[in-house]
Amino acid sequence: MCTHNTPSLALSRQSLRHSLIRCGWDPKTVFNAELALMELIVNAWRHGGTACPVVFFSLLGSTLRVTVSDESDALPEQRKPGELAESGRGLQLVEGLTHRWGVDPQQKGKLVWFELDSAA
């Protein structure tokens, strides 16, 4: 049974990191991909009502696409948290770390994705 916990997050990060390193991606881009992935997974737990989000990633030429599914039909919105707010910056972070991101509504839930282009 999958629950939202650190091991599932760590395994997703590790799998992504190893794949990108094997393909010769530079360390900064790998770090950005890992951090953006963590944000999407945490958002799926917190806001998507999904204890075990499904994570897909693919390399198409020099572009990485990472997709995280959740069970909520509510579309994510970027918030403008105050300076002292402890949360609410996840999508801003994803936007700043990646080249593109978006949401694809599904019959049940949605797919939130980002793309990064290789600097290698």
Results as ranks from 00 to 15, higher is better:
86 E>Q: 13
61 G>P: 07
39 E>M: 02
116 L>Q: 14
39 E>W: 00
85 A>V: 02
4 H>T: 03
49 G>L: 01
74 A>D: 14
59 L>I: 15
118 S>I: 05
92 Q>A: 09
18 H>F: 11
116 L>M: 14
52 C>A: 14
47 H>R: 06
24 G>A: 00
69 S>V: 12
29 T>N: 04
4 H>A: 13
8 S>R: 07
12 S>V: 04
81 P>S: 04
84 L>N: 12
56 F>P: 02
77 E>R: 13
61 G>I: 13
20 L>K: 01
8 S>L: 08
110 K>R: 15
51 A>S: 13
6 T>I: 15
87 S>A: 11
88 G>C: 06
40 L>D: 06
11 L>A: 05
9 L>W: 02
66 V>N: 03
49 G>M: 00
115 E>S: 05
58 S>T: 15
23 C>T: 14
82 G>I: 02
32 N>K: 10
6 T>G: 02
88 G>S: 01
103 V>A: 06
80 K>D: 02
1 M>R: 07
119 A>E: 07
64 L>T: 08
29 T>L: 06
83 E>A: 15
45 W>C: 06
84 L>F: 13
116 L>R: 11
77 E>Q: 15
8 S>Y: 05
59 L>A: 06
3 T>V: 15
47 H>E: 11
31 F>A: 12
91 L>C: 06
19 S>M: 07
119 A>W: 08
97 L>K: 00
88 G>Y: 05
63 T>I: 08
111 L>I: 00
37 L>G: 00
61 G>R: 09
39 E>L: 01
35 L>R: 08
114 F>S: 06
51 A>F: 12
114 F>Y: 10
93 L>D: 01
119 A>I: 03
15 S>I: 05
38 M>C: 01
33 A>K: 09
1 M>H: 12
38 M>N: 03
86 E>M: 13
43 N>M: 12
7 P>L: 13
95 E>W: 09
98 T>A: 07
8 S>A: 14
119 A>Y: 05
